[in-house]
Write a protein that binds this DNA or RNA. Structure first.
Length: 572
RNA sequence: CGGGAUGUAGCGCAGUUUGGUAGCGCACCACACUGGGGGUGUGGUGGUCGCAGGUUCAAAUCCUGUCUUCCCGACCA
């Protein structure tokens, strides 16, 4: 490819509304252009990278015995009603009607479609296990698209779905996918970690997310400082304190805390540490007998809604109590609630239950209680893990302490079980000629997001630094004064022809630009290998080479150059 | 959905306070010089000032509404 035939839309200035580095560089390098909120055009250079990512994913999926198919973006609503997700999925599901008034949705994921396909096509246990994947556009009407293609509304995803007669078989495929994912992200040159994850709205049992470590990530990942343990903070267990609770030494006293409603306000009002204060939150209960439930965590901790939601007493989805309910249950406004004397169920976090002589709301506006103790002054209906882990907590694996880093979720694998196969009645005949519901796994990779994630981890002040595996071109040739020097032109064209015939993806910058412009553009778009050819070198019988990551260029004798380059390209 | 910003040429911005001929840099086009790190000069192209309505002799500027984009929040006891 020659730059004269390529839309090379680089810009010197960074568009003002791009915040993260990958978004800035994708715009500056001319990979993508915004169309509307969360919608992007992919320009030729960006698409070349996207296709490379797809290629690696496809290659490894096929190696892992998954078969490629393609399912429609537009999906009939009936299937969503059949699975029950028409109600559950909410406003992220973009619904549309055709000319006949029939309802459809733009697919945010394809569990319903694949399950429908499989129930129609697969008849016998002899055909199982089977694993299908597709690389397809998804649409999710995100609350807040941001960071360019990192969180866009339309995006490309690889999604795979496996079907099994039993959970043992599912677990084997899950493990195969786990290994395939590790190979994929390794080939993509990413610094990543598999982490234990919550299954979220998609449902199911076991689940791992694959996260690219980057400060711009939107997820918090909890790591152990001493083991391989890694889990999304949504899931990471906050283990019970090992030490016994200290003896009660104080008596309960009611103190005025005018206008102090938040933990921070109470803290500054009473001049105590936040960990001495317990906060009590009222939420919707699961049953009519317990319409409101109290949740208690320590002032320096935050409630984990996902953990809370899983408790039998707590309504799903997690919903805070209304002001009316709070007044009816506690006799005060939010901000002055405490566990003492409440007649509703009180669920206490394990760590909060280890506090003694603590401070909490007095269930009377603008008053708090000090010197409160569990059992003596307040009863816990249930003690459970309902908070987020924080840095320094003991790791649930038993080794080391928790450390928290930001991650970009680029892959997610689930053991779904039979949620969808049951809902859609996807069965096959087993050895006994009996219909049996299928076990199901699903495995996603965010293709477009990966492009951004790679850039987040591979850039410098000059621009993008592509890993070899997904660079839009492996090599660029930058000629010096080619329009004035027939000798240079001859050498450049010969090099271009040789490399092209070798099957190397080479970009020849044949624009009549100044050297500085060409150097800067090639560095901005991140081509790994650079060859400079000019009279200066030719006079000495030399050709210049520089890797994008090299500090300095080196001059190589002409007759050794091809062997030198082959070694650099791993073609030797 | 709540809060805060923002919108003027492809990009980055000034002009709005105090109403009076729409500007600058980059990019783009032409020519000349230059030629190993975004060079210089001369001359150009390009804008319904987000949109709609209002006030006024006169609106980018004041008023009302509306939309876009971006940021923060959606944990608050």
């Amino acid at each position: 490819m020659k730059t004269s035939n390529l839309l090379l839309s680089t810009t010197r200035e960074t568009p003002a509304d791009a915040v993260v580095i990958s978004h800035q560089l994708m715009l500056r390098a001319g990979l993508v252009r915004p169309l509307a909120g969360g919608l992007y055009n992919w320009l030729p250079l960006g698409l070349r990278v996207l296709r490379k990512v797809e290629g690696i994913v496809r290659d490894e999926m096929e190696r892992a015995m998954s078969q490629e198919i393609l399912m429609p973006v537009v999906q009939p609503m009936e299937l969503w009603e059949e699975s029950g997700r028409a109600n559950d999925y909410g406003p992220e599901l973009l619904r549309i009607k055709d000319r006949h008034g029939r309802e459809f949705a733009l697919g945010p994921t394809h569990e319903e479609i694949i399950t429908d396909l499989v129930r129609k096509e697969i008849r016998s246990y002899k055909q199982l296990p089977i694993n299908f994947f597709q690389i397809q556009t998804k649409f999710r009407d995100e609350i807040r698209p941001r960071f360019g293609v990192m969180r866009s509304r339309e995006f490309i995803m690889k999604d795979a779905y496996s079907f099994h007669m039993d959970t043992d078989c599912l677990e084997k495929t899950y493990q195969t996918m786990f290994e395939a994912y590790n190979r994929i992200f390794t080939r993509l040159g990413l610094d990543f970690r598999p982490v234990q994850a919550d299954t979220g709205s998609i449902g199911g049992e076991a689940s791992h997310e694959f996260h690219v470590l980057a400060d711009s990530g939107e997820d918090d990942i909890a790591f152990s400082t001493q083991s391989d343990f890694a889990a999304n903070v949504e899931l990471a267990e906050a283990i019970a304190p090992r030490s016994a609770r200290a003896e009660a030494t104080a008596i309960v006293e009611k103190v005025a805390t005018p206008n102090a409603h938040s933990i921070a306000e109470v803290q500054s009002c009473l001049r105590v540490k936040t960990k001495k204060i317990l906060k009590t939150l009222l939420v919707q209960g699961a049953t009519e007998e317990t319409p409101v439930v109290a949740l208690v965590v320590r002032g320096d901790h935050t409630l984990n809604e996902i953990k809370a939601e899983k408790l039998d007493l707590v309504a799903e989805p997690f919903t805070l109590a209304t002001d009316e309910q709070i007044f009816a249950s506690a006799g005060c406004k939010a901000g002055s609630i405490g566990p003492v004397g409440l007649s509703i169920p009180v669920i206490v976090d394990r760590t909060a239950f280890n506090s003694s002589d603590f401070i909490c709301g007095a269930n009377e506006d603008d008053f708090h209680l000090t010197g409160v103790n569990w059992d003596r002054d307040a009863k816990a209906t249930l003690v459970a893990d309902i908070r987020n882990v924080v840095k320094g907590d003991p790791s649930p694996c038993g080794q080391g302490k928790i450390e928290i880093k930001r991650g970009i979720e680029v892959g997610h694998i689930f053991q779904l079980g039979n949620k969808y196969s049951t809902a859609l009645n996807a069965t096959v005949l087993n050895e006994n000629s009996r219909a049996q519901v299928l076990e199901m796994g699903c495995y996603g990779i965010g293709i477009t997001r990966i492009v951004a994630a790679v850039i987040e981890q591979n850039n410098d002040e000059k621009g993008i630094i592509w890993p070899e595996s997904i660079a839009p071109f492996q090599v660029c040739i930058v000629p010096m004064q080619m329009h004035k020097s027939p000798r240079t032109e001859e050498a450049v064209m010969a090099m271009y022809k040789t490399l092209t015939e070798m099957g190397v993806e080479v970009l020849l910058d044949d624009r009549k630009e100044r050297p500085g412009v060409m150097f800067n553009d090639m560095e901005l778009i991140g081509i790994p290998h650079r060859i400079v050819i000019g009279e200066r070198g030719l006079d000495k019988g030399q050709i210049e080479y520089k890797h994008r990551r090299d500090e300095k260029a080196q001059d190589i004798p002409e007759d050794e150059f091809m062997n030198f380059l082959k070694e650099k390209l791993n073609l030797a």
